[in-house]
């Protein structure tokens, strides 16, 4: 993989970087819509985890109002985590990933395109579903808005950091559990600031600074995570 860049696909040489990214993105979306169950599963999981809390702890309005934002955030985090195993797995199994690694375009940009597609297919639906669950958890109106906003900024960070873990554990036995072990500690700052912003908003404090910090997380993850997952992918590919 190092040394002289071997151009395996002469056709691909003519494709611009942006074109290649777009192609990867559209392909992932298309494949995902052919297997709709995979799209639905994280959403179902999200709703079920949230349901467990009123049943398991307390259905009282005061408890749900206080803990609701945190529960929704944790549930969203877990369902993103659950879906990460699929990020590279199918492409790894059928050999597409190998072709992707061999493309002349920089791998980290292609990985970025894949991760963005993953976010659009899992993170974004979660954000869209959040207002409904927010009402069920008795969240006040402006909290729901802020909650959706934090999830909108936070879930791409979850996907981006998660892509590193997914790339590292590719092709290993019990990759799912290992992936969670590696990634959950790295998710903690996003979770803290996501729920902290909602808590500040519900107390009437200004949240601009917190949202800006979350935006900083997003840009940090956008710039650094694709490099890490691209190099992790190369390592995992040479392993198998």
């Amino acid at each position: 993989m190092t040394g002289n860049p071997v151009r395996v696909h002469p056709v691909a040489e003519g494709v611009s970087v942006a074109g290649a990214m777009k192609a990867v993105f559209l392909r992932d979306v298309k494949v995902a819509f052919r297997q709709r169950q995979d799209l639905l599963n994280p959403l179902l999981f999200f709703v079920m985890v949230v349901t467990l809390f009123p049943l398991g702890v307390s259905p009282e309005v005061s408890f749900l109002r206080e803990a609701g934002a945190g529960i929704l955030w944790v549930a969203a985090l877990l369902s993103v985590l659950l879906s990460l195993d699929h990020l590279f797995r199918h492409d790894f199994d059928d050999g597409t990933l190998e072709q992707l690694v061999l493309q002349p375009q920089p791998l980290f940009l292609l990985v970025l395109a894949k991760t963005l597609a993953h976010w659009m297919l899992t993170g974004l639906p979660l954000v869209i579903l959040t207002p409904v669950l927010g009402v069920m958890m008795h969240q006040p109106g402006n909290s729901i808005g802020i909650l959706c906003l934090t999830l909108l900024i936070g879930t791409p960070v979850l996907s981006l950091i998660g892509s590193i873990g997914a790339a590292l554990t590719l092709g290993l036995r019990s990759a799912g559990v290992l992936l969670s072990l590696l990634i959950i500690p790295l998710y903690i700052p996003v979770l803290i600031f996501g729920t902290g912003t909602v808590a500040a908003a519900s107390e009437g404090a200004p949240v601009g600074a917190y949202l800006a910090l979350m935006g900083a997380f997003l840009f940090l993850a956008l710039t650094l995570a694709p490099f890490a997952s691209a190099s992790a992918l190369k390592i995992s590919m040479s392993n198998s």
Partner: peptide
């Protein structure tokens, strides 16, 4: 060796962020 190195580096980038956010929390 190389996979672990990538993980350790990702972790070390995160340590200050974790520390700061946990203190804020």
């Amino acid at each position: 060796a190389r996979a672990v190195s990538v993980l350790v580096l990702v972790g070390v980038v995160n340590i200050p962020i974790i520390k700061y956010s946990v203190e804020w929390w």
